[in-house]
Amino acid sequence: MKRLRPSSILLHAGLIVVALVTMTPVLWMLSASFMAPGEASSFPPPFIPGRFTLEHYRALADRLQMGRYFINSMIVAGAVTIISLFFNSMAGYAFAKFRFKGRDSMFRFLLSGMVVPAQVTMLPLFLLLKTFGFVNTYMGAIIPGLASIFGIFLIRQFAGSIPDSFIEAAQIDGASEFKIYRSIILPLCRPILYTLALFTFMGTWNDFMWPLIIMTDDSRYTLPVALANLMGEHALDLELMMAGSVITILPVMILFLVFQRHYVRGIMVGKSNALSQVGPLCADE
């Protein structure tokens, strides 16, 4: 096929080095999680378990409630994904396909909100949810994720490409607005909905600061919070900590590997379009 030129060899050598640097921490984590206690901190550091053991996973499941944290993460990330998908898709559709007074200025107002760091909201939000009695509840962890500006933006970009004639035809047939949304818009938006679902699920699963604040009792911890907490007590149990990290990382990594097509599209389409939005956003001032 192609002749191997020096530049090609250099290029691929570089790519392989970067790939090794990228993968080594992840592979070492996986490998160390199967090592016997203390083995990973011997010298020289071993890369392959001398004796393969599952005892750390067993300890995490039996003694350290890891199954519970896993379920907590599932509940919070799952609920946020489902609810925000409904909220964002309705709003994104409205911004894309309805003409009403104040639409564009409101949308611009929302976009400008993306500059505000989430940390600014956390102190009052905590107090607000405390008065509702939502501290240390799943609701408390779910609420900030109910709607996302980025999600609305992504749907709006995608729904904008749906021809108006589809909607008009349904109106002539006497379909209600909700029916149009449900049986025309949602099916046509399916690709971007998958993308947004993945983004939301992974983002919520990996979220750390807010669940750390709102979940005050360890029975409600999500995996990242539980892991950070575990680090306090079991910092010396290296292999156990690696097993905990594997449990935290693996679900989303598998999800990504299976659905990466959708995930990558979200970045390519969403961000390159966001680019074109930054212009008008500031040109108006």
């Binding site: 970067v18 990973a40 550091p45 680090m231 905990g244 990290s245 590997l257």
Partner: peptide
Amino acid sequence: FRTIFFLPVVTSLVAVAVVWRYLYHPAHG
């Protein structure tokens, strides 16, 4: 290559910070 380079992005920051804490260990990292 694209997939491999992207993998760390989807990991939990807390989990990889835990892993790197051990990679950085002065004696047996």
